[in-house]
Amino acid sequence: MKKVIAGIALSGLVALSGGLQAAEYAIDKEGQHAFINFKISHLGYSWLYGGFNDFDGSFSWDADKPEESSVNVVINTASVDSNHAERDKHLRSDDFLSVDDHPQATFKSTSVEMTGDETANITGDLTLNGVTRPVVLAAQFIGEGEDPWGGYRAGFAGTTTLKLTDFDITKDLGPASQEVELILSVEGVRQ
């Protein structure tokens, strides 16, 4: 569920790309070349995977000044999908995402710190379940270049781990299920 935060990863990723001048990118929602997924332990015996199917966002970056990059992501929390209708209904309830009261989760980057030639830590404010907290996304630049349709794209991946209680999600899922890992893969189209 904190995958939403996965949208956060986008911002970190944006800061990592190679030798272009500052540019604005829109997350490729239409072609669905972006994913915000999550992974959480189920009782310590297996992994439960899911994602958010409806999100949007943009980022800007300057390869010469990656620390000035930025990203904004909005996730429609009701789009949570764990491949099980009854579980998804429960995830949308007040036990978890409270989608009636908090239909969107947002991420807005506040800083980018390069950790390598193609890696960065992207810090930003994640608002989820009505709670705003800083999170750090470990991001990696995947690639960039022209696409077959006359556009230009940049792609990134990233991960972060969230404590459920940090976002007022207090449903006790057992000791092995206190944190959720967000896994992001983002492709942006230069505007």
Score class of each variant (00 low, 15 high):
Lys2Thr: 00
Lys2Trp: 12
Val4Lys: 01
Val4Arg: 01
Ile5Ala: 08
Ala6Arg: 03
Gly7His: 09
Ile8Gln: 04
Ala9Pro: 03
Leu13Glu: 09
Leu13Met: 14
Val14Ala: 13
Gly18His: 07
Gly19Phe: 02
Gly19Arg: 07
Leu20Val: 06
Ala22Trp: 06
Ala22Ile: 01
Glu24Met: 01
Glu24Ser: 01
Ala26Thr: 11
Ile27Thr: 12
Lys29Thr: 14
Lys29Met: 05
Gln32Pro: 00
Gln32Leu: 04
Ile36Tyr: 03
Asn37Ile: 04
Lys39Thr: 00
Ile40Val: 11
Gly44Asp: 08
Tyr45Ser: 04
Tyr45Ile: 09
Ser46Gln: 04
Trp47Tyr: 12
Gly50Thr: 12
Phe52Ser: 01
Asn53Ser: 13
Phe55Ser: 09
Asp56Ile: 11
Asp56Tyr: 14
Asp56Thr: 15
Gly57Phe: 04
Phe59Tyr: 10
Ser60Trp: 08
Asp62Asn: 14
Asp62Gln: 06
Lys65Leu: 11
Lys65Gly: 00
Glu68Lys: 14
Ser69Arg: 11
Ser69Tyr: 13
Ser69Val: 09
Ser70Trp: 05
Val71Lys: 02
Asn72His: 14
Val73Met: 12
Val73Pro: 04
Val74Ser: 13
Ile75Gln: 03
Ile75Trp: 02
Thr77His: 09
Ser79Leu: 10
Ser79His: 08
Asn83Gln: 09
Ala85Tyr: 08
Lys89Pro: 04
His90Glu: 12
Leu91Arg: 06
Arg92His: 04
Ser93Glu: 07
Asp94Thr: 03
Asp95Trp: 06
Phe96His: 01
Leu97Pro: 01
Leu97Ser: 02
Val99Ile: 08
Asp100Arg: 03
Asp100Glu: 15
Asp100His: 00
Pro103Gln: 02
Gln104Gly: 01
Phe107Ala: 15
Lys108Trp: 01
Thr110Gly: 00
Glu113Ala: 05
Glu113Lys: 07
Met114Ile: 01
Met114Glu: 00
Glu118Leu: 09
Glu118Val: 09
Thr119Asn: 12
Ala120Pro: 08
Thr123His: 11
Gly124Tyr: 06
Gly124Asn: 02
Leu126Trp: 06
Gly130Ile: 07
Gly130Lys: 07
Val131Pro: 00
Val131Lys: 13
Val131Asn: 06
Thr132Lys: 13
Arg133Phe: 06
Val135Arg: 12
Val136Pro: 09
Val136Ser: 09
Leu137Gly: 14
Ala139Trp: 02
Gln140Thr: 15
Phe141Asp: 07
Phe141Arg: 07
Gly143Asp: 13
Gly143Cys: 05
Gly143Asn: 12
Glu144Phe: 02
Glu144His: 02
Pro148Gly: 11
Gly150Trp: 10
Gly151Gln: 09
Tyr152Val: 01
Tyr152Phe: 12
Gly155Trp: 07
Ala157Lys: 14
Ala157Asn: 14
Gly158Thr: 11
Thr160Leu: 15
Thr160Asn: 15
Leu164Val: 11
Thr165Lys: 14
Asp166Gln: 07
Asp166Trp: 04
Phe167Thr: 10
Ile169Phe: 08
Ile169Met: 10
Thr170Val: 13
Lys171Ala: 01
Leu173Pro: 00
Gly174Gln: 11
Ala176Asp: 15
Glu179Arg: 08
Glu181Ala: 10
Glu181Ser: 10
Glu181Gly: 04
Leu182Gln: 08
Ile183Ala: 01
Ser185Ile: 10
Val186Thr: 03
Val189Asp: 04
Arg190Ala: 13
Arg190Cys: 11
